[in-house]
Amino acid sequence: MLWLQQLGQIGLRFVSRLGMSLVFLIHALYGAVRCLPRFSLVIQQLFSIGVLTMLIILVSGLFVGMVLGLQGYNQLVNFSAESSLGLVVALFLVRELGPVLSALLFAGRAGSALTAEIGLMKATEQLSAMEMMAVDPMKRVIGPRFVAGLIAVPLLAAMMSAVGVLGGYLIGHGQFGVDPGVYWTSMQNGVDFVDDILNGVIKSVVFGFIVTWVALFEGYDAIPTSEGVSRATTRTVVTSSLAVLGGDFILTALMFGGL
């Protein structure tokens, strides 16, 4: 009986948090729209969540591409199909790894920082102080971060895919001597702009939305103590990573069929 009650509690808590986060989302979107006239605020946030995440994205993208090159070549060469290496690497990156990995890295690097920052602003009464200065934190604090997240994640995903393709080329051509022309042509023949590139971009926009939303909500909703903020930061990474992976499954099924 007890476990049933606990299950019910978990369910209720989940639904109430979901509801709270939806209300928050509406306020945040409204704040995002109102903050647009002062775009310098968005630019500041683009710096702290975009530029500072760029390096980790570029480096991981390169390594992911190189690993794909190695693994792909070693498998394809069994079927004498190493001419398709470029296609394999590009499709993996553009459709899946680019959007998903960059969203996960963004959650770990920028999402957790967003949560901690906003949680600490709450804990040190900065948000209350803004309200008392007749400044709406949704417009001044949450809005610009939301817009910046929406802009940054798709760009980061594109960077990761592009660098990954180059990494695959580095291994394919440099290590295994795949002909450059073959590498790029097989890619260009097989990768479709609408089906693959555009769908990948749509995915990364959705992921950016999810991660930024989760991170801002967790920060805004954090219990204003150091323990509460640290918990909220953990929750941001866990929740947004799960949401990205789950969302990826749904989006993939919708875009590429299979369900």
């Binding site: 683009l46 710096f47 530029v51 760009l155 960077m159 890619m187 479709d192 702009f193 590139i197």
Partner: peptide
């Protein structure tokens, strides 16, 4: 400095998108 860095960030991002559109998929706009 922030604005310059954000400019660089946007440039790299857009260049990456361009590369995906033209170099990777070959046929932009289908």
């Amino acid at each position: 400095t922030i604005e310059i860095w954000v400019g660089i960030f946007m440039m790299i991002g857009i260049a990456a998108l361009m590369m995906l559109a033209f170099k990777v998929s070959g046929s932009a706009g289908g």
